[in-house]
């Protein structure tokens, strides 16, 4: 038992240090993504209405006219593509995910300006498992979470250990999800 306790402490400590950064990333993005219905965790979104006299119906100067609109409304010339989702509606994409939609009949439009949320954007990107390499690394992190749980049983002895208050906390942590499953 002495050896098990010793190794539990060593593994818990060293893997704990190794995954401090990853824990913060997954913790932060976990909270952010839990509330997807309430906010956009990657971008802050600003919507502005406008009216334009620029002719945006399909014609020989469409490209030029669209650029003029983008310059005047978005204060940028960093435009991507555009298309007409309906006959009288044009959608123009800007770099960075922002977009403009205009009714070509009456010139009424809306610009949706997206701005990346620092830290959240990067954390969410990683949480969403961007590629195979990250899959392996995050699998190692997940396995370490199991390791943390198992080693915590043996790290402390006495009344603060698994046969004392530690055991009560463990039971509470197991009962809460079970109750949730029963009553949800």
């Amino acid at each position: 038992m002495k050896q098990i306790r010793k190794w539990s402490r060593i593994l818990h400590r060293d893997f704990g240090f190794l995954f401090i950064g990853t824990s913060i990333i997954f913790g932060l993005s976990g909270i952010a993504l839990n509330h997807l219905a309430d906010w956009n965790p990657n971008y802050s979104v600003e919507n502005k209405q406008f009216k334009t006299d620029i002719e945006l119906r399909k014609n020989i100067t469409t490209d030029q006219n669209i650029r003029a609109l983008v310059n005047s409304i978005a204060d940028t010339d960093d435009m991507r593509k555009y298309y007409y989702p309906e006959g009288n509606r044009i959608k123009i994409f800007l770099k960075g995910g922002s977009s403009i939609i205009v009714n070509t009949d009456n010139g009424m439009g809306r610009i949706e300006l997206l701005k990346r949320r620092p830290l959240f954007y990067q954390s969410n990107f990683l949480h969403y498992n961007p590629n195979r390499w990250w899959t392996w690394f995050s699998d190692a992190f997940s396995a370490s979470l199991i390791l943390f749980a198992l080693t915590s049983f043996f790290m402390v002895k006495g009344k603060r250990g698994v046969w004392g208050s530690g055991g009560i906390y463990t039971l509470i942590g197991i009962i809460i999800p079970i109750l949730f499953l029963i009553f949800s």
Partner: peptide, 24 residues
């Protein structure tokens, strides 16, 4: 994926880069 006349969903097993939005 959209055009002036139509659209179609493209499904991937891995996550798409959001930077693709607005590109052809």
């Amino acid at each position: 994926l959209v055009s002036n006349e139509n659209n179609v969903h493209v499904f991937s097993k891995e996550r798409f880069d959001e930077n693709l939005v607005g590109q052809e």
